[in-house]
């Protein structure tokens, strides 16, 4: 169960770089514990110097963007490692929505499961939003309206983003995906029984010996 999300309002930070990888979003040093504050590690490699001090020129260290709720990113955002911590870091920092012309497959799936809105935008929309963000230098509010799948600039312009309708609904309800899948339990069991009957070699006896506690 994730927290239902309908609308997000806040400052939009821009990261105008293609192929931002999840190692950059959350470096591996932040993954050594199951309970780290991933928000602090967000873009850690670029955000801090070697002594751990904030680099003042990095976008998320600059005053208005420290409170950013929306991230405008470029092509193939979130590529590389499957680490879901990349999404946790964004969410724990306070980002509720990432808009990009495209996302890497695994990141895109991870986003939905943590209530992070991953909105796909046309390249022209990317340019328009980037221009709007630059014009307002972070001082004004952008708004994400999930029911209409649109982003509203401080100037009141409305731009659409793409998100599969049923998945937007799931975000608005805060669906627990495992619970949804378990509604298919009879079909899953039927598949397993059929596979066992037709391809018994797939389930050899050696596998049945599970670890003794």
């Amino acid at each position: 169960m994730t927290k239902p999300v309908r609308d997000i309002a806040g400052v939009m930070a821009v990261m105008p770089i293609a192929n931002v990888n999840t190692d950059a979003i959350i470096p591996s040093v932040w993954l050594r514990t199951a309970t780290a504050d991933m928000g602090k590690g967000l873009f850690g490699g670029q955000r801090y110097d070697e002594q751990g001090n904030e680099k003042p020129d990095f976008v998320l260290n600059r005053p208005p963007f420290r409170e950013a709720k929306i991230l405008l990113a470029d092509e193939n955002f979130g590529c590389g490692s499957s680490r879901e911590a990349a999404v946790w870091a964004l969410v724990q920092f306070g980002i509720g929505c990432v808009l990009a012309p495209s996302f890497a497959d695994i990141f895109y799936e991870n986003a939905f499961r943590n209530g992070l809105v991953a909105g796909l935008i046309e390249p022209a929309t990317y340019q328009a939003l980037k221009a709007a963000a630059e014009a307002h230098e972070g001082s004004a509010e952008f708004r994400i309206d999930l029911p209409s799948a649109s982003v509203i600039t401080p100037g009141g312009e409305l731009h659409p983003f793409r998100i599969p309708a049923s998945r937007a609904q799931a975000l608005m309800r805060g669906d627990d995906e495992i619970a949804m899948t378990l509604q298919h339990q009879p079909a899953i069991e039927a598949h397993y029984a059929a596979a066992k009957a037709e391809s018994d070699w797939l389930f050899p006896a050696t596998l049945q010996r599970t670890q003794s506690p």
């Binding site: 499957s82 879901e84 999404v87 799936e109 991870n110 499961r113 495992i178 378990l182 339990q185 899953i188």
Partner: peptide
């Protein structure tokens, strides 16, 4: 897959 999907596989 990500960690939520690991949980999904474990459960389903």
């Amino acid at each position: 897959v990500g960690t939520s999907e690991v949980e999904h596989v474990l459960a389903t």
